[in-house]
Simulated assay, not measured.
Amino acid sequence: MNVCIVTITELENFGNKLQNFALQEELKELGVQVDTAPNLINYEYRRKKSFVIKQIIAGVLHKNLRWRIAVLKKKHEFSKFDSRYLTFSQFASTLSHIPSDLDEYYDLFIAGSDQIWNPYFTFNFDFNFLTFAKQDKRIAYAASFGVEKIPDKMRSAFRTYLNGLKCISVREYAGQNIVKELTGNQCKVLLDPTLLRTSEQWLQMERKPRWIKGNERFVLLYCLGDDTLKSEPLKRILLSQQYSDCKMVDINDMNDWRKYTIAPDHFIWLIHHAQLIITDSFHATVFSILFEKSFFYAQRKDENTSMSSRVSSLKSLLDFPFPDNEIIHPTQQDIARVQMALKRRKKEAIQYLKDALEIHE
């Protein structure tokens, strides 16, 4: 059986790439051939003359040169990761074009995970909801809306999209509520694909950044929202005796291009070896839990996304109701409870995929 994953592919985002890889590997273990369809949402924009001119101007201005180098190097690192770990389809979609023969080439399409259905993002929703394929080929695995409510002007379109899918599962309980409200149907809430892999499996991928010297102790900072994590909470942590000898590693600071331009396999290594992870990222929190690390999670304030739904669903699925804005040191009881929840939730997720693929043992 040939299966094609439809997800976000153009972002230089660690969680996005790692969830894509995880779903690919889980499907391969079920005995199917798997590709990911390139989802080139920025293709037309980057071809416009105005965009090219802006890039040239940005490149020649000294104040932006370092920034441009960092962006290009990060793209290069992610491209190398793609080549090493992901298998891509020969059929690519853009904002205005879906290949006409895509449906004929694959037996099944799986949309997800990540925020592939976020109504505030610029997407080709006909592609992300698999409308190009026959209805019995359209499956969603742990897809995320990234919001708690669909805007009124898009509700009718989303209702049609959702009713066109054969099987639906989502990543958050807020998404389950959206599906119920728009279609009247109950869908499953399943694990993000990254949680289907064990910590041991992820460690086979980890790669140490060259700029980490020896066994130096460090606190990892990965902040995608505003700079609140870089102020008072951070100062309190760094002044504490436990972390006073730790180096601060901020991997989202574009002024330090060596750290900013790491690849997803570096990201795995850094979380695994950090003394503490400070983050507002869903996937950084996921890997902190998988690796049984101490972490500090703060809700990110994004205008058009709902971090509270993502992480509250994670807490519920893993039976780990950790508080926000506090350093969490997982206890043995926490770890045992998470492991039991993961075992149960993974079994449910794999059964969902088997049913969708019509694999009968």
Rank of each mutant, 00 (worst) to 15 (best):
2 N>L: 03
4 C>E: 01
4 C>N: 07
10 E>K: 02
11 L>W: 04
11 L>C: 08
15 G>W: 09
20 N>K: 00
28 K>W: 05
29 E>D: 10
29 E>F: 04
34 V>T: 06
37 A>Q: 06
40 L>H: 15
41 I>L: 14
43 Y>W: 14
44 E>N: 13
49 K>R: 13
54 K>E: 12
59 G>V: 07
65 L>T: 10
71 V>A: 02
71 V>T: 07
79 S>I: 09
81 F>C: 11
82 D>H: 04
92 A>F: 12
94 T>S: 14
97 H>P: 00
103 D>H: 09
104 E>T: 12
104 E>R: 12
111 A>P: 01
113 S>Y: 01
118 N>K: 02
124 N>T: 08
125 F>V: 03
126 D>L: 01
130 L>D: 05
134 K>G: 04
137 K>P: 01
139 I>T: 01
144 S>V: 10
149 K>G: 03
149 K>M: 09
149 K>N: 13
153 K>F: 11
153 K>T: 12
154 M>I: 04
154 M>W: 05
155 R>N: 09
159 R>V: 02
160 T>Y: 10
161 Y>C: 01
162 L>D: 04
166 K>P: 00
170 V>Q: 02
177 N>G: 09
180 K>Q: 14
181 E>H: 09
192 D>V: 05
199 S>C: 09
199 S>N: 13
199 S>F: 00
205 M>C: 09
221 L>S: 03
223 C>N: 15
224 L>T: 09
230 K>M: 09
230 K>P: 03
232 E>D: 14
243 Y>V: 06
248 M>R: 12
250 D>T: 08
253 D>N: 14
253 D>E: 10
256 D>Q: 08
259 K>A: 12
264 P>I: 01
271 I>C: 11
271 I>Y: 00
277 I>A: 08
282 F>W: 07
286 V>H: 04
287 F>A: 06
294 S>F: 08
298 A>I: 03
299 Q>S: 14
300 R>I: 08
301 K>I: 11
311 V>P: 00
315 K>G: 03
320 F>L: 09
320 F>M: 09
321 P>E: 06
323 P>Y: 06
326 E>G: 03
326 E>R: 14
328 I>L: 07
329 H>N: 13
331 T>G: 08
332 Q>S: 13
341 A>H: 00
345 R>I: 03
346 K>R: 15
351 Q>Y: 01
352 Y>N: 02
355 D>E: 15
